[in-house]
Design a protein around this nucleic acid. Structure first.
Lengths: 222, 222
DNA sequence: TAGCTTCTGTGACATTTGTCACTCTGTTCC
DNA sequence: GGAACAGAGTGACAAATGTCACAGAAGCTA
């Protein structure tokens, strides 16, 4: 049980929380295991609570009626997901699945979140800080989709990937990258070659390596 | 000054607030006037505070380096904007301009927001509720951009427009609609004709009227 | 009322990006 | 070890949407 406690302690959500409350939270928190591709939750269903990744990667995504997929977030260890569902007591705003086998995730039930939120004003302020980050990131995603071409979006993704291990590893395939930056695996292939020609990257089937970050940043218009 | 007070009282932000605090807020709140197209604030500059529309419409938008524009929100009377800038003390995440002449907006300085937030736990909970709505709306925008074609996005916009007066009126031109749903005024023209042929709408230069909501909803895939 | 500007509309054309069909490579799992 | 399968890559082609150039209508200002 030490793991839960350590993890929950390090989550910004519960920063500055009293020891008794932390014990209460850890007691109510459940560990779940998922195999590769297994559904964690479905869009539109009542939210169970706040999820925290312990091991592996999780993708949070939207589907349209034709089965096309758009990945909103890729979450690795220490990251939380479905914050909104847990906070407003509504339905899940998206779907989530495990990206590899042996994915471990903690579930803090909504009631626990709500209780702590009303009991401890500091937690509410933490949540506001986190939601602000979330809003800025979503606005950034909208900006990318609306204002920049595939090559710019891919360059930006590669730069983010270099800084965030959640964006690499098993399950983060060309298909997944495509579903995240709103294009197709084939177009990713094409654009990777274009980026290689500029001297910004090198790549093979398994790895994409940034060889000249300056060039990549300029392509990313950053 | 009755107006400020009435307005601020009706803002969900300050629901359940004590009378003394409300007086404090209204005393610190400033009314500003803007003419058509005038800049209210610029992306990247330090946020001054929380804005509340008193009269007229305001557009909140992103620009890319080529000058292309994407409208994130159109705000009418009673709506707040730049919440995030005011809450996290960072820079403005986007630009804002007045859409018509004689736009009146209240500005609640960031310090006031922060003070009230730490003093009154209820306000923090209100803010969380509001940010949750904001996040859901942004996720919806991403879904639209990533997963649906122009005709679906336009149909969805028209349905929202029918329910929200902020999405009509002076300044909400074809060009603005195009900048909101990520297309061009020309394409809007084309697609309006297509929608007219399905029997969903009628339109002329000035007005778009939904004549068959059922058809429009089915095109919107809702 | 003239004249400037903004908005809207139209058609030809360009371009990005997606689609399809197929191959190849590497991995997984009996 | 070999079949079965997912992922990656390629090229021809299709399609949605954007671009450009222009014209007519409406609104604002002098």
């Amino acid at each position: 049980m030490a793991t839960v406690r350590n993890h929950i302690e390090s989550i910004i959500y519960f920063e500055g929380i009293a020891d008794g409350e932390l014990t209460y939270i850890t007691e109510k928190t459940i560990l779940r295991t998922f195999s590769s591709g297994e559904l964690i939750f479905l869009e539109g269903e009542p939210a169970e609570g706040l999820w925290i990744v312990e091991k592996g990667n999780v993708k949070v995504f939207k589907l349209n009626t034709d089965g096309a997929e758009h990945i909103l977030h890729l979450c690795g260890p220490g990251k939380t997901f479905n914050d909104i569902g847990a906070l407003d007591g509504g339905n899940n705003p998206a779907n989530a699945t495990a990206l590899s086998s042996g994915v471990l995730v903690w579930l803090v039930p909504s009631e626990v979140i709500k209780y702590v939120l009303t009991q401890n004003p500091q937690v509410a302020l933490n949540v506001i800080r986190l939601l602000a980050v979330r809003v800025r990131s979503l606005v950034g995603q909208i900006e990318d989709l609306a204002l920049y071409s595939v090559i710019v979006r891919l360059a930006r993704f590669l730069l983010k990937q270099a800084a965030d291990p959640s964006l690499s590893g098993p399950g983060v395939t060309r298909t997944a990258i495509a579903a995240h930056i709103n294009t197709t695996p084939q177009t990713i292939s094409n654009v990777l070659h274009t980026l290689k020609e500029t001297g910004a990257i090198q790549f093979d089937r398994h790895r994409i390596i940034i060889v000249n970050e300056r060039i990549l940043r300029s392509i990313a218009m950053l």
